[in-house]
Design a protein around this nucleic acid. Sequence first.
DNA 1: TGGGATGATTGGAT
DNA 2: ATCCAATCATCCCA
Length: 406
Amino acid sequence: MDDQPRLMHAHAALGMSGHPGLSHEIFVCSDAHRGLVLCFRKHALNCHRMKPALFNVLCEIKEKTVLSIRGAQEEEPPDAQLMRLDNMLLAEGVSGPEKGGGSAAAAAAAASAGVGPDNSAEHSDYRAKLTQIRGIYHTELEKYEQACNEFTTHVMNLLREQSRTRPISPKEIERMVGIIHRKFSSIQMQLKQSTCEAVMILRSRFLDARRKRRNFNKQATEILNEYFYSHLSNPYPSEEAKEELGKKCSITVSQVSNWFGNKRIRYKKNIGKFQEEANMYAAKTAVSAASVSAHGSQANSPSTPNSAGSAGSFNMSNSGDLFMSVQSLNGDSYQSSQVGANVQSQVDTLRHVISQTGGYSDGLAANQMYSPQGINANGGWQDPTTPSSVTSPTEGPGSVHSDTSN
DNA sequence: TGGGATGATTGGAT
DNA sequence: ATCCAATCATCCCA
């Protein structure tokens, strides 16, 4: 019987062979139910991050299926689990009404997977794959049904022939037909199950962003860093700021949020490590501030935070942070009266930054002196609950004067 | 190839 | 809803 090879072919056609650590199992699992167990174990490892509900359903289905297959298929095939498989395939847009509905369901699935409407290329890829799976599923299903019918009639004919030589009761025929049907339905179940798996893998592969994490490009990182260090006193960009940053960096708002979340944590955890970076961006900020002021016109981009001076939002924290990083470099008190100063004062500060950084080789001593503005005794920024947003008013000179001044 | 860097996710707290 | 902290998964470089 060529059912197994057929199933195997289906798996191969699903294009899953590239999936890390799964290709082998996929092929194995088409071989026998024992393979299914192996396959699932591996699959579970790889997909433990898939949508919990979906994953649980799959777990349950698989467990039961494996058990029932193990039980020599005598147990009546649980309609419930078949139904669940069907439901799942339906929900995933595989066994849906038509192609249009299928892709819609795929889009819905993609959306529910937490992937924004952005990367449409990825989505079309995903949809294409899903359509492929869908097609294979349907043709295979049809083939199985056809094969089942053919085999049944074949056996019936055989029995009829045999009935000439020995008495064959209708019950026996019925029994044989029942066995055949059960056999085929169990194969069908495997197909459905494998299809479910394929969809799960597809999802985890295409929709689990973590799996295909890419570092942001240099420019994006620079923009984000610039913003972060120029708002060090309160690095909580408002929604609008996030949107703008996202646009500038060609990333989503949630990616911006993630980035800031990570940055805050990591900065706080190891301030010393980031000091050099902080100084660098402080200098950069001052440079762009200088150029902006020189041009007399200001852009509204958040990537050039100094420009925010027009809104009076980030400007103060800007100079304050810059001031802090200069302070941190030498530990000298540095005219704290300038907190919240204008762009011109930043340019002045820049001179100091540059001169200081020039002689900054070791960094250790400076690290110890470094006391980042905005981070309070609890290790948090002053007011994380009020997203810097438009009200940068960096908590006034009081908070900025900080510690190193004595 | 190992380990650090980094983007994403999760669970709990507010 | 947002943030933090821990953690995971992947990237990337020495």
